[in-house]
Every structure is written in structure tokens, then in C-alpha cells.
Design a binder for these strands. Structure first.
Length: 436
RNA sequence: CGGGGCGUGGCGCAGCCUGGUCAGCGCGCGUGUUUUGGGUACACGAGGCCGCCGGUUCGAAUCCGGCCGCCCCGACCA
């Protein structure tokens, strides 16, 4: 994109409503704009990040054998009456009426709907197990939305649902998602730790939340240094091997990890002091096993091998996709702005033309831009060098290709790495090679 | 949902208590000159139903009432 013709409204000053860093930086870097309390519009650069994150989530879900589908945002109240949650869910659920006065809800989650879909068409044990997911907008009418995109009312969530014939199968599905989640967060450059959690309104008795470490996180977390050493991303674990999954989850759950509300000082103190780690964390994912809570309530059964009906065992698995955008920023920024991890950056590189209008600089920049295409944001504005430097740092592109009159004549550019800030004078070709 | 606060050009704010050239300042934006590798300087200029409705008054951004919106703290959550 050419910045001079892009809708990327950066701000020099911070709007008064933004308190935490990620919110401030998202507004300042022109990623989002607030439309109403807890409701945001994603502008071009922000939307790219959102899509990058969704793509990673999708890739890991697919790799775990989950099937992507897409369910509606609007759901009939009837389904929620069947499960009993129409009354239980409370005011957080947005309720609507259509022109015929039918009761509808804007989905805060999709257990009922997916159970309904499955019960219509899945009739035999031979069709299980299955895991399906979708990435869809949710609405939860939070009493107090805050922290920008981190706690919005409308948010993009990946929610997956597993159906298994029995408990043993459900446990395998649950573990598979745990591994997929750890790989997902790792790919975004985040350190995540699964922690024992309450299952809350979803119900069930096995639940973990995934906390990523960020200095500005909402809750304090305590964990064993062992989490820093587990190599779950490599070939060490086959996600389709129940044995590997058991081994993986064993590693994940035998070490101490707890948020402040579940922290047990007694157990904690038994851990060698040099292995004790504490920090702050943000919840970015949550997985639940809840057995037949919905299948039983909604009359979903399949014929078992003996011909008798069996209510499938279910689990659900959520990742806050839009929240992750904020979380990544919380985990990776400095005084100057965002420092995007390569995998989620809206642009791999910014091309800074320090002397717009200068024939040599312009030509060099155009050449670079032609080679990088959409991977680059070409700052071709008629602005001073300082403005371009400041905006590039703010927006946090992993690389900055700085083209100025000094080097341009000799055909060299300066390459700056946003994380770390190292700069290097390079030939055009070697700079491009580094960036790509 | 309890407690607190705020709505004045795109952003940050002053003005309100003590109604009357108070509609202003900084940034941003436009034009020109200047500068030319870290948000340059100067000049000129565009831009505001002072959140909305009603009331008090000769006169309301300013006082009163109602409504709407937004933010912060707490209890609750992907």
C-alpha cells in the first residue's frame, strides 16, 4: 500500500478514553476506531493484523483436524430455551425481536446451535468423532467494556466444538485442542501457559484457560520455569497420536501454573525458588469439556454399535481472535509504539522515502515497492523524515527500509529492525533478501 | 449493577463557579516560504448546531430540569 493513499489515520496524541497501552497504540497507529462502547471498526492496517491472526488460528485448527464452517450471528431464542440457558445467561446476552415478534439472540457462543446442527444430521456412532469450528463475531453485552479491543462487547472469536462417543474420546479431543492452542500462540510470538480454570456458565468439569504473559496483563500469574523449556511446536508431538497428546498434556499440567485467584501459596513454596516465575497475564483462550450437558438437554443422540442411542460427549474451545490483537501489542511494544512479531504484522516492511520528489530516492523506492508489493507499506507522503520515522516506529513494521539521499546515489539503503533497533547499510538486493 | 468523572472544530484541552466581543489555545489539516536523516520554523487560511431537548433570562457554552453518549474504579467475563 502507498501510505499517501491509504486510510491509516495515525494520531500524534492519545485520545482521552484510551487507558492501556494496546488501546492507545491501536488508536494512534490507525488500526481501529471506536463506534460505540465496546464496539470497534477495524481499519485497513488493523484488519490485516486481525486476518493474520485468524489465519494462524485457522491453520492450526485445520492441522488438528478440525473442520471450518460458518454459523450465523443471529440465533433463534428457541434453541437457548431448550438448553435452559435463555434464562441463565442473563443480561449479557443481547436479545432481539424480528418484525414478527419472534425472539432472537445475537450469539454470545454457539453450543446450542452446533448441537442442533449435529442432531439433525449425525445419526450414527460411525460419524464420530468430529471437531468443527468457526471464526465469527460474537456479542456479549458486558456491563463494562474496557481496554479497547481486549474487552469489547462485539468481538471476533474462534470457537470449536468436539463430539465424541465416549469420555475417553472426548479427552483426546480436549488434549488435541490444547496442543493446537499452544502451537497457535507460539506462532504469534506469544508465551502462553494453560491454567486450570472454572468452567463457568458453559458447564462441565474439565477446563483450562490460556494465559499469555504480558507486563500489563490484568491478572497476576505464578508458574514453573518448566513452561519456558517445553518444545511443543517442533516435531516432538504428533497431534493425532493419543499417546503423544497424553504426554504433552502431562507436561503442561504437572507443573505449577495459576492465576492469582487460584494461586496456592502452599504448593508454590514447595517449588524451588529459582524455578518460580511470576508475571502478569491476559486470557486469550479457554477450553471446556462438558460431557453431555447439551446433547442430553437437546436430545442429540446417535446410534451406538449396539444400536442403542448414546448422547455424544462434547467440548468447546474458544480463542479470542480480536482480543489477541490487543494482547500481542501488550506483550510487544516500547515507548515509540508497536513492535509486531513477524507473523502477525500488517506489513513486513515500511519503505521510508526520506526525500519524496527526489528522482533517485523515488526511483529506488518504486523499485523496492514493486518487488515487495502488498507486503510493504510505502511511505510516499510529502513529509519530513522525522514524521516518517516516528510513524513507522508507531505502526511497528518488523522492518524499515530507509531510502535517503545519502545512500540512494550509491544504490544502498538502510535496513532497520524494529525489534532491537539495529540498522545496517545494505545494497538494495541484500536488504530485500533479508526482508523476504 | 454500585461509586466517580466527562461531553466545546480531526486529536488534546481552557473557558462554566462569578451569565453579556469567550467561541479560544496547542497539535493536526490547506496554501506559501523555510527546513531537509528523528514529529523544523514563520505567515496566511479552512473548520465548531459548545452532546440533545426543554426551562430561567433582555441575553445561556456558562444557571436549572430531563434525556443520550463516553470514560475510570469495583463486582463479573473469550
Amino acid at each position: 500500500m502507498r501510505l499517501s493513499r491509504s486510510f491509516v489515520p495515525t494520531l500524534k496524541e492519545t485520545p482521552a478514553e484510551a487507558q492501556i497501552v494496546s488501546h492507545r497504540l491501536m488508536l494512534r497507529a490507525g488500526l481501529v476506531r471506536q463506534t460505540a462502547a465496546g464496539i470497534y471498526a477495524w481499519l485497513p492496517a488493523g484488519f490485516r493484523v486481525l486476518q493474520n491472526i485468524a489465519a494462524i488460528v485457522r491453520a492450526e485448527q485445520d492441522a488438528a483436524g478440525a473442520q471450518e464452517l460458518l454459523m450465523p450471528t443471529i440465533q433463534p431464542a428457541e434453541l437457548w430455551r431448550e438448553s435452559g440457558r435463555y434464562d441463565d445467561y442473563g443480561k449479557e446476552m443481547l436479545r432481539l425481536n424480528d418484525r414478527h415478534e419472534r425472539d432472537l439472540v445475537y450469539g454470545p457462543t454457539n453450543e446450542e446451535m452446533i448441537t442442533d446442527l449435529f442432531r439433525q444430521s449425525v445419526k450414527s456412532y460411525r460419524e464420530l468423532p468430529q471437531i468443527v469450528y468457526h471464526i465469527q463475531w460474537k456479542f456479549r453485552d458486558e456491563v463494562r467494556p474496557r481496554f479497547g479491543v481486549m474487552r469489547g462487547r462485539e468481538f471476533l472469536m474462534k470457537d470449536a466444538y468436539s463430539f465424541d462417543l465416549d469420555y475417553e474420546g472426548a479427552v483426546v479431543s480436549y488434549r488435541r485442542m490444547m496442543l493446537a492452542y499452544m502451537r497457535t500462540f507460539r506462532r504469534m510470538g506469544l508465551k502462553a501457559i494453560p491454567m486450570q480454570a472454572e468452567s463457568g456458565p458453559i458447564g462441565g468439569n474439565m477446563s483450562h484457560e490460556f494465559i499469555i504473559l504480558a507486563p500489563t496483563g490484568e491478572s497476576e500469574v505464578f508458574y514453573d520455569a518448566a513452561f519456558e523449556e517445553i518444545d511443543y511446536s517442533a516435531s516432538g508431538f504428533d497431534i493425532f497420536s493419543p499417546e503423544d497428546l497424553a504426554r504433552f498434556v502431562g507436561l503442561m499440567t504437572t507443573h505449577y501454573a495459576a492465576t492469582d485467584e487460584k494461586h496456592e501459596p502452599g504448593t508454590w513454596e514447595k517449588l524451588a525458588p529459582e524455578r518460580q516465575r511470576r508475571g502478569r497475564g491476559i486470557e486469550v483462550g479457554h477450553i471446556f469439556y462438558f460431557g453431555t450437558k447439551y446433547s442430553a438437554a437437546m436430545g442429540f443422540t446417535v446410534a451406538g454399535a449396539d444400536g442403542r442411542p448414546v448422547a455424544p460427549e462434547m467440548g468447546s474451545y474458544g480463542i479470542g481472535v480480536s482480543r489477541l490483537v490487543g494482547a500481542v501489542i501488550e506483550a510487544s511494544h516500547d515507548e515509540a509504539g508497536i513492535i509486531w512479531p513477524d507473523a502477525v504484522a500488517p506489513f513486513r516492511a515500511a519503505i521510508l522515502n526520506l526525500r519524496q520528489g527526489d528522482g533517485t530516492c523515488d526511483r529506488l523506492c518504486e523499485e523496492i515497492y514493486a518487488k515487495l508489493g502488498l507486503a510493504a507499506l510505502y511511505d510516499d507522503r510529502e513529509e519530513r523524515a522525522g514524521v516518517k520515522f516516528a510513524d513507522a516506529d508507531l505502526m511497528g513494521h518488523p522492518w524499515q527500509i530507509i531510502v535517503g539521499p545519502r545512500g540512494a546515489a550509491a544504490g544502498t539503503v538502510e535496513l532497520k529492525r524494529r525489534a532491537g533497533g539495529e540498522r545496517q547499510e545494505l545494497s538494495l538486493d541484500s536488504a530485500l533478501a533479508r526482508v523476504l
